[in-house]
Design a protein around this nucleic acid. Structure first.
Lengths: 219, 219
DNA sequence: TAATTTTTTTAGGCTAACCTAAAAAAATTA
DNA sequence: TAATTTTTTTAGGTTAGCCTAAAAAAATTA
């Protein structure tokens, strides 16, 4: 078993999240931005991760995760999401309060702890933001969700996930009544700026393109 | 609020645990041994902690915690012990499996998390080893327990705590039936090597001086 | 009290993860 | 294709926490 530092784990997770479905390489700059650090620091770390066989790295050509690296990333995501469920279901945190704390908890290293937590929580399938929880074998089933921004006029669906996890965004959703499980219908699309008029609880609500891109719907 | 690193917190905790009731200074070497590091490294850290006003440090004269340092230490201990209760009560860990994991969890920094955990656990008074849990104001009530080694012949009491938390020791106790809540009676004291013969469940059992020193009794 | 031993500190180095500034490569635009 | 811009890497430096070896102080023993 390879041991990974707190920091290395954050890089692996960032690369995973930045990887478009399979294959395509992630750029140094993209990682730097995601981790709020500098490109030079990223290059340093990429060399280290490549030495550990966690990523495939060719100078100037970005990176992909190796199988080992991907498993490591998925494992961290598993921990993150299970802790989020714990915080919301057991400790009564709100869905907009758990992300940062889970960023810390996800680095606690104990298979027994996380597997026991999963049992204790009753094998949840998704976290409080609708993201699927990988099983202990690292199998992650991405549900087929579409962002509101890709829906058609008159199409109906259930809010089932969010792409952005910041307190600011989730707080806004909460206040607007845009929470998981609600049914929404696209009433109109404004081509000019990409905003969308949706029907929610028989009321009409306009959301910006940015918001529409970050709400995921099961149609 | 002063921020403390993972490492600084471990030093504060070590100093706290090494401090004989109030006042008396802790030596550099004692800290080095407790933390499995070198005296030179300890000196480095002591300077840093003194700069942060967490300890009173005079060269060559050992250290004591300041009020702020003591509060910080107690807070870490509060987290450690609450996590131990969580692991045993909710996740079905054994009392000999929780110490190392709690050493990691205790550094997660969130007052809201730990206070919510305390509520969730029902405000436990002691951890799985019988150690008292400080309240959120940092008040720690040490119960008046005596080690078996200090008991008199024919004296009876209830096993209410342990001084040593290693898996090795706790495992031994478990196997011998020496668990929290059991009544024991001192049958005989062997002056030669300090071992003690105790009555447990109507059976006689001989324990070494080392073991006797580490089992705490409410008499 | 002098000599010796033990404890503690200082001096100087190491590594992980970060940084800035400069150089090199790749991508874009003219 | 040449010139320019952007991206990425290299070079060299910083800090936290650790180390070893040597020096200094304190404690112990003779």
């Amino acid at each position: 078993m390879i041991t990974t530092s707190f920091t290395e784990e954050n890089y692996l997770k960032a690369i995973f999240h930045l990887s478009p479905q399979e294959a395509e390489a992630v750029s140094t700059n993209a990682i730097a931005e995601a981790l709020q650090t500098k490109a030079a620091s990223v290059t340093d770390m990429l060399k280290k991760l490549a030495d550990k066989n966690l990523i495939n790295y060719v100078k100037y050509q970005g990176v992909t995760l190796t199988d080992i690296g991907q498993q490591a990333a998925i494992n961290i995501i598993r921990k993150h999401r299970l802790w989020e469920v714990f915080l919301v279901d057991k400790l009564n945190f709100k869905w907009d309060e758990v992300h940062e704390l889970a960023e810390d908890l996800e680095h606690i290293n104990s298979t027994k702890l996380i597997d026991s937590l999963e049992v204790f929580l009753g094998f949840p399938k998704v976290d409080p933001h609708g993201d699927p929880i990988p099983d202990k074998n690292g199998v992650l089933k991405e549900p087929a969700l579409v962002p509101v921004s890709k829906m058609n006029i008159n199409q109906t669906g259930i809010i089932s996930g969010v792409k952005e996890h910041s307190t600011l965004f989730l707080n806004y959703l909460e206040k607007a009544g845009l929470v998981l499980g609600k049914q929404v219908k696209v009433q109109d699309l404004i081509e000019f700026d990409g905003s969308v008029i949706i029907a929610l609880d028989k009321q009409l609500l306009t959301i910006s393109r940015d918001v529409a891109k970050n709400i995921l719907i099961a149609v």
